[in-house]
Design a protein around this nucleic acid. Structure first.
Lengths: 261, 261
DNA sequence: TTGCTCCTCACGTCACGTGAGGTGGC
DNA sequence: TTGCTCCTCACGTCACGTGAGGTGGC
């Protein structure tokens, strides 16, 4: 007859695990010898091997005990189910392998492919990494707020980028971040932005920061989203702040909606 | 800015998990709004996505926090290591799939292929399932005691089975289990067994149960193993008991070693 | 006002791991 | 006698789950 460690070693589990299985009634307590030591026979080896096989396959111990008492038909169905779960788990681990391989890929983890494409188009036309990050963070926050409303937005934005005039304006706004508030180019740029917004009414241009004083009413998820977005960037550069003011003044009473980011 | 549930939903973790990551310092606490609610930005989304990706890949939270603070080279090495572990885990799950498929296969789970082959050869020559189980349980117990000494044994046993005379004797012993102790065939069988043992000195035949009175000294692992084996079957049939006595008597002073099982 | 979300304790869960303190076999 | 195995509590671990009891937003 076998001692507990002989049993455990042969089957490939720890002694503590065997005692644990006894404690929760999964493996019956064997007879004891004169010293009070547990002594196991071949039946315990086979039972423990079954338990180990199921436990390693991820079956909870509570379910193993009901399984071992089940009739062959039910057992076979359960085994098929466990196999399905193992297959699914393997697929899942393969997805996790791809996910950790993309860990240094930055955006692809947190944004869908079309948005990542859009950000890469910005990079391709020479937009600064700072501006791309501004865009990226905006998309992340907006998507987390209202994921379903984004599909149309990203299409519009990508279409806008096809217009070389929009690309030129975008790059100028990007550079204006570092301009002095007194820089005369800001006035010129504001004129062009207002003109562009008037020429393409469907796609409205708004100065970078938007109007932060907008009340927190339940008007429109899109409006709230863009507000959340602008509130995230609490400090604007002096150049952008000036550009914002100029645009608002030039547009006069007409409220400008949409933003270049 | 995002609430905790918006953050959790977008990334695909529970709210409780986010709070847990705060508690163990894995994800920094964000600023609170006027109501004391946590408010998250895009940075938290990216950080949480990294944490989730690593955690789902099986990386302990304690290691994730050191990883996220590591330099790119170290991080890349760690990611490669995680990927190796994921690959190994996938291989392991595939082994588990094969293991649970073999759950109804009986012996193959607990015995090596050569022993399973030997048991199937016994079945092929007509040995009863009761006797095969006796053999199987003996092999299990002996293997658990001294796994390495078994290689030669199973070779010897398989070679013995090639001798038709041995097979005939084995089948007769199998059937003798049910014979009446007064059955004259027992005397005849004992004669044949002793003669066979004398003719093939290398492979000694011993009556089924062996001598249970052997002292528990540290002589030889093989002897102790066979003792363990016989002590496992605490009740012999009257037929076998008589056969045992007859063999011992006929062999006289000469001790018979080896057993038919 | 009602239902939903958020907050902070704090105990529960699962499958054991890990000493603590003691006995038995060689 | 020494070192190893065995025994029984009983608390610890890991990554959260799950109420408990209370507040804030619409």
């Amino acid at each position: 007859m076998l001692t507990i460690s002989q049993l455990a070693d042969y089957v490939g589990v720890t002694v503590r695990a065997v005692r644990h299985y006894h404690q929760c009634g999964l493996l019956p307590e064997p007879p004891r010898d004169a010293s009070g030591y547990r002594r196991y026979g071949a039946d315990a080896v086979m039972e423990l091997m079954r338990i180990k096989t199921l436990a390693q396959a991820g079956v909870p111990l509570a379910r193993i005990s009901t399984l071992l008492a089940a009739d062959p038909g039910e057992f076979a169905r359960a085994v098929a189910d466990i196999d399905r779960k193992l297959k699914a788990r393997i697929k899942e681990l393969e997805r996790h392998r791809r996910a950790i391989a993309a860990l240094d890929g930055g955006e692809s983890l947190v944004l869908p492919a079309d948005v990542v494409d859009y950000l890469n188009q910005l990079r391709a036309i020479g937009v600064s990494e700072r501006m791309v990050r501004y865009e990226r963070d905006s998309w992340i926050v907006v998507m987390a707020c209202s994921r379903d409303r984004i599909a149309g937005w990203i299409e519009d934005k990508t279409a806008l980028l096809a217009d070389p005039e929009f690309g030129r304006l975008y790059l100028a706004i990007d550079q204006a971040f570092d301009w002095d508030p007194a820089d005369p180019r800001l006035d010129e740029l504001a004129d062009e932005m207002v003109a562009f917004a008037a020429a393409s009414p469907r796609t409205q241009v708004r100065p970078p920061a938007g109007d932060a004083r907008r009340p927190n009413r339940r008007e429109d998820v899109d409006l709230r989203a863009t507000e959340l977005l602008s509130s995230q960037f609490d400090v604007l550069s002096p150049g952008w702040k000036r550009l914002n003011d100029l645009c608002l003044a030039k547009a006069g009473a007409r409220r400008l909606d949409g933003n270049p980011g």
